[in-house]
């Protein structure tokens, strides 16, 4: 992790590329490593705290390592009306962690998020970039088993 910038090229990058760079780092390392923040700040000529400020602002970026698969369950009204709390409970039970945590084997992270624009198939969740809708507690195992 020391030379983070080897995998993601930082040459010729501008401030406007920052969000894209951080997203690449997130995809590559499952979080934004400290070293990457330092290198990126240097490459873009920005203070480190500004890079950190951006990295910590967005829900899809994390400065703490996340699991291989990130489960994001929608907690907003249309999903809430369709019993999203039951879905949250069954995911918690299935993988044994609470929102904000990562399983010890690093397979899953669990987060509660704002509306993902799938309210017509509420309750809904994202696993990585896949949308899963019309969830029932029964279907949770089936879905999560497809992510190993």
């Amino acid at each position: 992790m020391e030379r983070a910038s080897q995998d993601i090229s930082l040459s010729d990058k501008k401030r406007e590329d920052l969000l894209m760079l951080l997203k690449s780092a997130q995809a590559e390392y499952r979080h934004i490593p400290r070293a990457f923040i330092v290198d990126t700040a240097k490459a873009l000529g920005l203070p480190e705290n500004q890079v950190f400020g951006v990295a910590s602002f967005y829900a899809f970026l994390s400065v703490e390592p996340l699991g291989k698969h990130v489960i994001r369950i929608c907690q907003n009204l249309p999903c809430y009306l369709k019993n999203s709390r039951m879905i949250i409970d069954s995911v918690k039970k299935k993988i044994g962690i609470i929102p904000g945590e990562t399983t010890p084997d690093g397979r899953f992270s669990l987060e509660l998020v704002s509306c993902i624009g799938a309210c017509d198939v509420a309750p809904a969740m994202l696993v990585n970039h896949d949308v899963h809708g019309n969830l029932t507690p029964q279907r949770i195992s089936e879905i999560l088993n497809t992510y190993d």
Partner: peptide, 25 residues
């Protein structure tokens, strides 16, 4: 195409522009 990174406020036009510029939204 510029992809966001998960922030409702980035739908607000000035926050959106900050986001495209690589800033906090």
């Amino acid at each position: 195409i510029r992809e966001g990174a998960g922030a409702y406020i980035c739908g607000e036009e000035s926050a959106l522009m900050n986001s495209i510029e690589g800033r906090r939204g």
